[in-house]
Design a protein around this nucleic acid. Sequence first.
DNA 1: GATCCGTGGTG
DNA 2: TCACCAAGGAT
Length: 347
Amino acid sequence: MTASSNAAKPTVSGVLLDWYDRHARDLPWRAQPGEPAADPYRVWLSEIMLQQTTVAAVKPYFARFTEVWPTVEALAEASEEDVMAAWAGLGYYSRARNLLMAAKAVGDLGGFPETEAELRRLPGVGEYTAAAIAAIAFGRRAVVVDANVERVVSRLFAIEEPLPKARRAIRAHADAITPDRRAGDFAQAMMDLGSQVCTTRAPQCLLCPLARFCEARTQEPERFPVKPPRKAKPLRKGRAFWIEREGTVWLVRREGSGMLGGMRSLPDDGWSARSDGSGELPLAGEWENAGSVFHVFTHFALELTVLRHGGAEHPTGEGEWWPLDDLGKAGLPTLFAKAARRARQIT
DNA sequence: GATCCGTGGTG
DNA sequence: TCACCAAGGAT
């Protein structure tokens, strides 16, 4: 027997954890050197923000939220208006509504639950996020499968079955390679690998620590995961209304849980609830066409024409006169921030 | 399972 | 450039 044959056979998790110990990204929600474990509040907050959102986009929002609300108890005491305004621009606004509800629930529980099943009951926490928090914040063994893990695993095992049907097989393979110890580090290592090395386009196989295990390595890694073709986006048209009086503008809050629900916005003609806007005007008098803005959502594109009111009448119904000098603090979603810029002729 | 839900970066 | 996509969840 040689010395090398006594060594344990290299495993995916062993090799990947060694790589992670050398190459882990320094991210503000991870445990810092000297800290024994990551703060569950920061892990949870980051995981919600990172849903379908890039690390670069999340960083300034994470910094702002943890500065204003350093603990989950502080966040639980915040007003929905303040939370929604702080979330403005990050997208998927149901996350912000659920965030506040979950913070209150955690406060009622006296702290974060530690098991996947209990975490899963918090609004906005699904299968992935529950597994991630249990593993990263509480050291539990959990099978963490996000889009990065789907990509890495589908390449490791050259899974030809297209998504979403392949999810069952992907999860089984992910389970098989997840270690009993350091499951949280393993999950973060898979995500670091997926975002930096095993990328969607132009994967860096020459830098990949798992190349020796990878079945797609000798094929075309970019083929995996196999995905069905996606549908074309329809174009909708709508109008937004700019009503300015004495240095203020009339803003409303959007209803319910639908498109941009709960967010402050310009009044509009209902384009989000119909295929196109109604064409009705909210106020009698003269309207001036200030031009259009174009915005792409997840499942449709919108051409929004901005109409500026020229008269002196005041609108009726719910709303508020917002100082133009503080418009940046109104928390307008990007679409309406664009529309406001157009109305004010600032490029 | 299919659809809805934002935004900004990128090759 | 522009189609594609990113640490998904709710219904």
